[in-house]
Design a protein around this nucleic acid. Structure first.
Lengths: 165, 165
DNA sequence: ATCAGCTATCTCGACGTAGAGATATATCGT
DNA sequence: ACGATATATCTCTACGTCGAGATAGCTGAT
């Protein structure tokens, strides 16, 4: 099946035959697919009254395991947002009583963000729904193809995720 | 090489062994990689004084070929933003004399957005830089692997791009 | 010819994010 | 101990996006 990137690449080859646009075959698809996924996630979460950014934070805490707490800094690396954004997110989640801030006992500069019971319920409820939706999107591929795709993507994400910065 | 998604998946398997989180192996990597790419692009474009959103619009027009014009609606489907956003973008690009608005001769509701010569220069200058950067990211993979990856991604983007909506 | 419904674009208010700077605390070498 | 430097988090402003609604023009059925 042809997609927008096929059309995009064909257009560049016509307009700029002097350039090798092969990289776009992979990376433009990654960007566009992520955008489609954002939209689908927003729709799915709206059914349980959750914003995608709330999901990201709550599930990061849920994954940490009991007592479901992480520093803002740890949340940054997991969610790929800036510190100003994370402060804002924690504020809003705290106002909804889904998380609470605690002083870090080992570092007086630091803070720990902990999931409340209500926050944990939200996190658990939303994850199952997301997985169902993602399974539908991935039904285009066989199990082996999904595994192959995951492996190739890991080769690209690895360098970013293990970067010093 | 291990990445954040490996850690994320391992954490879910520990915390929620009742759920099959295999879909995250693919789709969480897509989302995170797109986020990394956004950052890298922002950095690369700042060197030529261009924002990523400006690049997206200008190159869509450039790809259209002479006379480098498209309707706002056509730009929407290519850039995956909403109409309000596109109006705003066109306004700002017009203010910088990179594009101009023309009435559509065939539909009095419509408008055509056309690249100015300055806009075309910007588009051409920035594309080469982007490709160089993307090539570096993709150097992790062999030519065959890149082709394979592009093919698998197309299977996922195709349904979205060919959807009625 | 007309009307209902559709399409293309723009308007506008609410919201979330980035990014730089501020503050407080920790850490390391001397 | 001390000072330089690094780290953790928060504050604040500017900016871009979304999304619902408004407007104007098109189109097909009757």
């Amino acid at each position: 099946m042809e997609d927008e990137v096929d059309r995009l690449v064909a257009a560049w080859r016509r307009e700029r035959p002097d350039l090798d646009v092969e990289p776009l075959e992979v990376l433009s698809r990654v960007s566009r697919l992520a955008r489609h996924l954002d939209r689908a996630r927003r729709l799915a979460f709206s059914e349980v009254g959750l914003e995608p950014w709330e999901f990201d934070v709550l599930t990061a805490l849920r994954r940490a395991g009991a007592p479901y707490q992480l520093s803002p800094g740890a949340l940054l690396t997991q969610t790929l947002v800036t510190s100003g954004t994370m402060t804002n997110r924690i504020d809003r989640l705290a106002k909804k009583d889904l998380v609470e801030r605690l002083p870090d006992p080992n570092d007086r500069r630091g803070v720990l963000v902990r999931l409340t019971p209500a926050g944990r319920d939200k996190a658990d409820a939303s994850l199952a729904g997301l997985l169902t939706q993602e399974r539908a999107i991935l039904a285009e591929l066989s199990r082996d193809q999904r595994r192959e795709l995951a492996g190739l993507l890991r080769r690209l994400t690895g360098p970013f995720d293990n970067l010093p910065g």
